[in-house]
Amino acid sequence: MENIYRLILLFIFLSSCNSTCAHKNIEVSELLSIAAEKKSIDYCKLLNSALSGNEDSIKEISLLEFDDAVGYDHGSVIVDLILEIGEEKYLRSIFMISKEEKYLINSYLDVGLIYGNNPKVDKKDLKKYLS
C-alpha cells in the first residue's frame, strides 16, 4: 500500500514538471507555457523555429501579447532570443511592422532588460532600433 502512495506522489511530481521547456540558453517559465497553451500557442515550438532563424517565427513570437507577469517572462525570452540570433537578424525579421507593434515589442524589451536574469545584458538600449 505504501508503494502505491509513492507512485502517486511520483506521478504528481513528474506531471507538474513537464509544463516548461528550455531551448539552447533560453528557459521558458511554467507561467508563460501555461498562458501560451491557454491561447492555443505552442510556444516552445515557435521559439525553436525562431532560434533556427525563421523570420516569420521571430516576428510571430515577438508580437504575441501577454499581460502582467507573463509579459515580463515573455520579454525576457525576447531579449534572450535577440542575444542568440543576433540583433541584425532580429531587426531584419521585424522590419516591416507597424508603429503600434514596435511599441509592443519595445515594452517587452523594457521589462526583459530590466527583469530578465541574463548576465550578458547590462541594460543595453535596444529600443533605439525600434524608434
Rank of each mutant, 00 (worst) to 15 (best):
M96G: 15
I97T: 10
I97F: 03
I97V: 14
S98E: 00
S98M: 03
S98P: 06
S98Q: 04
K99A: 08
K99P: 07
K99D: 07
K99C: 09
E100N: 12
E101Y: 06
E101I: 02
E101S: 04
K102G: 03
K102E: 05
L104Q: 00
L104F: 01
L104A: 01
L104Y: 00
S107Y: 06
Y108H: 14
Y108L: 11
Y108Q: 10
L109Q: 05
L109S: 01
L109H: 01
D110T: 15
D110K: 09
V111R: 11
V111Q: 09
V111K: 10
V111T: 14
G112F: 00
L113C: 11
I114N: 09
I114P: 00
Y115G: 09
Y115K: 10
Y115L: 09
Y115D: 05
G116A: 01
N117E: 14
N117R: 14
N118Q: 13
N118W: 00
P119F: 07
P119G: 06
K120D: 03
K120C: 02
K120P: 02
V121T: 13
V121M: 12
D122W: 09
D122G: 15
K123C: 14
K123F: 10
K123V: 13
K124S: 13
K124D: 09
K124F: 13
D125G: 11
D125T: 10
D125N: 15
D125L: 12
L126Q: 08
L126Y: 15
L126R: 13
K127P: 04
K127M: 01
K128H: 02
K128G: 03
Y129L: 08
